[in-house]
Write a protein that binds this DNA or RNA. Structure first.
Length: 735
DNA sequence: CCTTTATTTTTTTTT
DNA sequence: AAAATAAAGG
């Protein structure tokens, strides 16, 4: 390959990174500065110029999307398949190591991956079996706690013992959960990383082997690494492997998942000789868009400091539309998509981004009404759907009857008269005998431990699974899947469901057959062989991937459709035209994060990510009233709008065809003379109204929620900070 | 034991 | 408002 091809069209910073000869590199890459390009070219450089073997390079990304993109671009550049290369997500790669070295990791060869739904179920089960009150200890919170600990690399034994009964329970449940997982060979997302880390720690020879093997490690989205991920990389790198970390502190948006921006700061200390390279030229957005993004992010403190600039055009001003409610907002956005397509653009070049998945429904409805094709990423994931998980559970049972989770899941789906009571008996039987649920079914029948009716039901379940598994070795993967969804009765079961829901589920099941057909086992390098184990069956590999992959690359990828997604999943992508919807205080920045400075700054980085997705045109919308959780809420425009200098914004005038009800217009600063609903409830305060509270002193009303006796207002007190108050209790005095 | 109906809870972002 | 859960009815 011609070396000039690799570096010719790069700017100085990019070239420095691609051709770096320093021991390690920390690349601070601003949004749109050609980060992926640098990574891909760097790998090509290593292979083609430095003669590094493709198997001595490891590239880690965060999302499957990013990994896929990187593989694709590598193949394009190098003209060779990137299959066997170590390119993948942290979870994907760690899983690969665990599969290879399951013995050293202390796992059964066919360990199961739990997704968060499975994990929650298991937590609930552990709590039930140990009589932990789930009203005092919400299972979700315990799950959250466990994941938090794992992200920090702590096992239950490492959690500081505490005299606080609450903390004590958390620790105990974590411990019990750990035990169950170990006994049954279950591994959750956090465990994958934690185990992979321990794999290095406890097997120095193995670690040495890999440190020898790998010459270069590249980490994408470095600002989003959590402590366990960083520790894992550091361990693997040792003092032999060269590491290139690429990231942008302004785009760190996964703090809630344990991501630690501090890792960027520590990198230069932890990797001596690390060269700092900044990529500050943006090739993506217009001057206007970039200026807006810079203005917003400049409100954050403690940034590493970067100065993004562009040689691009000035571009159109940012359009701002104030809708009176979320319906109006959605309608406006649908119109915009329509116009965009009518101007001859591809709809796929336009994206609608929002803060929370719940917002997608209204948008979807409006697009549907307007007959505009759309594609939603995220939200309910394909492989997490109920019907799909049921089908997967049957498939798992074909391979392993002792998979208790799967037995529990489908023993009575479709309904075959095995109720909670019967399952309880089976469970206690299994516990007494120390065997799996499947075996306890057999034993219970043999010993006549069940009522007559239940016996025949359980027998028919056992027979069904046995029948389905007969002769599957002869079948292709998709034939097995289709065989199972037909014969398990799942199709019939969901067809009976009323409404469109049933049909949608049947469609999804059929889509699963499709996914199986497209599943290319060659893409998953066969790991077992290296270790002399039985190679994994195609089905086993398919099931493993279902757990790690969201499966959002499925349906209608080829239709020209607008892209809908959350801001989080938009990271790393770019679109000529971008709509940021729902920029309202309380929604974005989200209510849950806006009371603390740290949370608010992360929200702001999220806004920065959103703005910088746009190449040519950015549209921002907000609604003055929005139905959320069944209640009408009024809110003020997001502070992030105000942080954009007004010279970059042009407010869209309302079309006079849309008659907006006067009733829904609370005005900033005025006493409340608006809002019929509010008047009826005789609300004495308006947005911006100064009020006096007996305890907290003076403050300003900034937001409403609810109505009647449940009406609450958010008041920013001059001294006491921001509080939500229930109007009927708070005795606020208007000033 | 299954299905229907009433009640309660949940409302951020994801590998 | 929708989903999950609990309780009642068949």
């Amino acid at each position: 390959m011609d070396i000039s091809l690799l570096v010719d069209q790069l700017n100085d910073g990019q070239r420095n990174a691609v051709a770096a000869s320093s021991p390690h590199q920390l690349v601070l890459a601003g949004a749109g500065s050609g980060k992926t390009r640098v990574l891909v070219h760097r790998i090509a450089w290593l292979l083609e110029v430095e003669g590094v073997s493709p198997f001595a390079v490891m590239a880690v990304t965060f999302t499957n999307k990013a990994a896929k993109e990187m593989k694709g671009r590598l193949e394009e550049l190098l003209n060779v398949p990137a299959n066997g290369m170590w390119v993948g997500t942290f979870h994907g790669l760690a899983h690969r190591f665990l599969k290879l070295h399951w013995r050293e990791a202390g796992l059964p060869q066919h360990f199961q991956i739990l997704d968060s739904d499975d994990q929650l179920r298991l937590v609930k089960r552990v709590m039930r079996e140990n009589n932990v009150d789930d009203s005092r200890y919400p299972p979700k919170q315990i799950q959250w706690f466990i994941n938090e600990q794992k992200d920090e690399g702590r096992r239950a034994a490492h959690v500081m013992p505490s005299s606080d009964p609450f903390a004590k329970t958390l620790r105990e449940v974590y411990y019990l959960y750990e035990q169950i997982c170990q006994q049954n060979g279950l591994v959750d997302f956090g465990e994958i990383l934690l185990r992979a880390h321990e794999l290095w720690l406890e097997n120095p020879d193995l670690l040495a082997h890999y440190q020898q093997r790998f010459r270069n490690i590249l980490v994408d989205e470095f600002q989003d690494t959590n402590n366990i991920q960083y520790a894992w990389i550091r361990l693997l790198a040792g003092n032999k492997v060269s590491v290139m970390a690429v990231g942008d502190d302004d785009q760190s948006i996964y703090g809630w998942r344990g991501a630690n921006i501090g890792n960027i700061r520590d990198f230069q200390q932890d990797f001596p000789g690390a060269e700092l390279i900044k990529l500050e030229q943006n090739y993506r957005s217009t001057k206007t868009i970039l200026a807006a993004a810079n203005a917003v992010i400049s409100n954050n403190s403690g940034r590493l400091g970067k100065n993004l600039f562009t040689d691009g055009a000035e571009g159109e001003p940012i359009r701002l539309y104030s809708a009176f409610n979320e319906q109006d907002e959605a309608r406006y956005i649908a119109d915009q998509v329509d116009n965009w397509a009518k101007e001859g653009n591809a709809r796929a070049d336009m994206a609608i981004l929002y803060r929370s998945n719940a917002q997608s429904r209204t948008l979807e409805e409006a697009l549907l009404r307007a007959g505009i094709p759309y594609r939603i990423y995220g939200g309910q994931r394909f492989y997490e759907r109920l019907e799909i998980k049921n089908a997967l559970a049957y498939l798992r049972l074909l391979l392993n009857r002792d998979d208790d989770g799967s037995v529990e899941r489908v023993i009575n789906v479709p309904a075959r008269a095995i109720g909670e009571k019967t399952v309880d008996i089976l469970r206690s039987f299994a516990r007494d005998q120390g065997c799996s649920l499947w075996k306890s079914c057999e034993l219970a029948i043999a010993n006549n431990a069940l009522p007559k009716r239940a016996t025949s039901s359980v027998q028919s379940f056992l027979d069904l699974v046995d029948e389905m598994s007969a002769g599957i070795e002869e079948l292709e993967l998709q034939e097995i899947v289709s065989h199972v969804i037909e014969n398990s009765g799942l199709i019939e079961h969901h067809k009976k469901e009323k409404g469109e829901k049933g049909q949608a589920r049947v469609d999804n099941l059929e889509e699963l057959v499709n996914a199986a057909r497209q599943f290319d086992a060659d893409e998953e390098p066969d790991l077992a062989e290296e270790d002399g184990d039985q190679p994994l069956s195609e089905l086993a590999q398919f099931l493993d991937r279902a757990a790690l992959d969201a499966g959002d690359g499925q349906a209608d990828e080829y239709e020209d459709a607008v892209q809908l997604m959350t801001l989080h999943s938009a990271k790393g992508l770019e679109f000529p035209q971008v709509v940021l919807a729902g920029l309202e205080e309380g929604l974005f920045p989200h209510k849950m994060s806006m009371d603390e400075a740290e949370g608010l700054e992360e929200e702001r980085r999220l806004a920065y990510v959103g703005i910088t997705r746009a190449m040519d045109q950015l549209i921002i919308t907000h609604a003055e009233s929005r139905r959320l959780y069944g209640q009408e809420n009024f809110s003020t425009p997001s502070r992030f709008i105000r942080e954009i200098p007004s010279e970059y914004i042009s407010e869209v005038r309302l079309k006079n065809t849309v008659s907006r009800p006067l009733s829904a217009r609370p005005k900033l600063g005025g006493a409340i003379t608006t809002g019929r609903k509010l008047l009826d409830d005789s609300l004495p305060y308006g947005l911006g109204q100064r009020v006096l509270h007996a305890m907290f002193g003076e403050g300003t009303v900034v937001q409403f929620e609810g109505q009647g006796n449940g009406l609450r207002v958010q008041v920013n007190f001059d001294d006491a900070g921001s509080k939500w108050l229930v109007v009927s209790f708070a005795k606020l005095e208007a000033l």
